[in-house]
């Protein structure tokens, strides 16, 4: 059972990190009604910023131009700010043009793909496709020496969950504050909000930046845990995974995000790893697992289309 706990800890750490991304996306999509299918842009910006700020000067086999050797915590926070700028920079022109949610989704998706491709083909930014390795190795080896892999995983889990809880609390406060109420009002009817004198674009861009900040912080923690960054960490599949979790859990409800992540990344994804197998189907088992997962996803959406924990709409006084 001890072994199972160590595995559960790994899964919990991944869930906490992607949970932070989910909270950021929920601020943008759940509250703001702004679809961010390219949420991996902010996540990746956080990963790459943290990497280039923590690694040392390039070695003989490296192609990247610069490494700043900053402390990890500072690099992660910088990653958050860069991510927030990247996310807002991608979305702002589209928000200004007033595109629909689906088109904003496409614009963000395109932005993330452009960023990923450029990082992949330009060796001089961060080694291109092969990526940069050994990120945060000092911290990791300190942890390995003082308690091994499980201790290291536990530390990262505690950091990630502390950030998750902080992000959760901040976003709850923000949701209830006047700012959050205006953002939701814009989601429901942006024309009406504009008539009330709110600067719709400003609120939307700020929401995007706030969401982007959290996805960037998550990226920073993730890259240190992995110890490596490649452009493949920014594949569209990662964005989709987060969007599925948010919509399945319940858009607009932070508890829903938590449940969505636990259900998709935890129960369904890992549960499918434990499906029974026999020799006849062993070779196609990985595909059957994905099919079982997809079927479960469709069933949940079929019977809970509003998400497992839908948004609690404020009661209107009649």
């Amino acid at each position: 059972m001890e072994g199972f706990l160590a595995f559960a800890l790994t899964v919990a750490t991944i869930s906490a990190i992607f949970g932070i991304v989910g909270l950021g996306v929920n601020a943008q999509w759940g509250y703001g009604g702004m679809l961010n299918i390219g949420n991996v842009a902010g996540f990746g910006a956080g990963m790459y910023t943290t990497t280039l700020l923590t690694v040392g000067a390039p070695g003989e086999r490296d192609f990247y131009a610069y490494g700043a050797s900053l402390p990890l915590w500072l690099a992660i926070i910088c990653g958050g700010f860069v991510a927030s700028i990247v996310a807002a920079a991608i979305a702002t022109p589209a928000l200004k043009a007033g595109v629909s949610a689906l088109r904003l989704g496409l614009v963000t998706f395109a932005g993330a793909e452009i960023l990923r491709t450029v990082l992949a083909v330009r060796l001089d930014i961060a080694n291109g496709f092969p990526g940069v390795h050994g990120v945060g190795s000092g911290f990791r080896h300190w942890a390995f020496d003082n308690g091994g892999q499980d201790f290291y995983d536990l530390l990262i889990f505690l950091i990630a969950s502390a950030v998750f809880i902080t992000a959760f609390a901040l976003l709850e406060i923000w949701r209830r504050a006047p700012f959050g109420r205006v953002v939701r009002a814009i989601r429901e009817d942006s024309d009406a909000a504009a008539m009330l004198g709110h600067n719709v674009l400003k609120f939307q861009v700020q929401t995007f930046a706030i969401g982007g900040f959290f996805t960037g912080i998550a990226g920073g923690i993730y890259v240190i845990w992995l110890g490596t960054v490649t452009p493949d960490n920014m594949l569209p599949a990662v964005s989709f995974m987060v969007m599925i979790a948010v919509i399945l859990g319940g858009s607009g409800n932070n508890w829903g995000v938590l449940f969505g992540i636990i259900i998709t990344l935890g129960l369904l994804e890992q549960g499918s790893r434990f499906l029974p197998t026999t020799d006849d189907i062993r070779e196609i088992m990985p595909y059957l697992r994905r099919m079982a997962l997809a079927a479960a996803l469709i069933l949940v959406l079929r019977f809970r289309p509003q998400g497992v924990l839908p948004e609690q709409r404020s009661v209107t006084v009649k």
């Binding site: 399945l248 994905r290 099919m291 997962l293 997809a294 469709i298 959406l301 509003q306």
Partner: peptide, 27 residues
């Protein structure tokens, strides 16, 4: 059967169908 759900739920459901079928084809 899901036609009364909103467009986003259907989009994610179609992503699920896509996962299901592409893995079926692969198998």
């Amino acid at each position: 059967p899901m036609r009364n759900s909103n467009a986003w739920v259907l989009l994610i459901a179609s992503l699920g169908v896509s996962f299901f079928l592409s893995n079926l084809f692969f198998a």
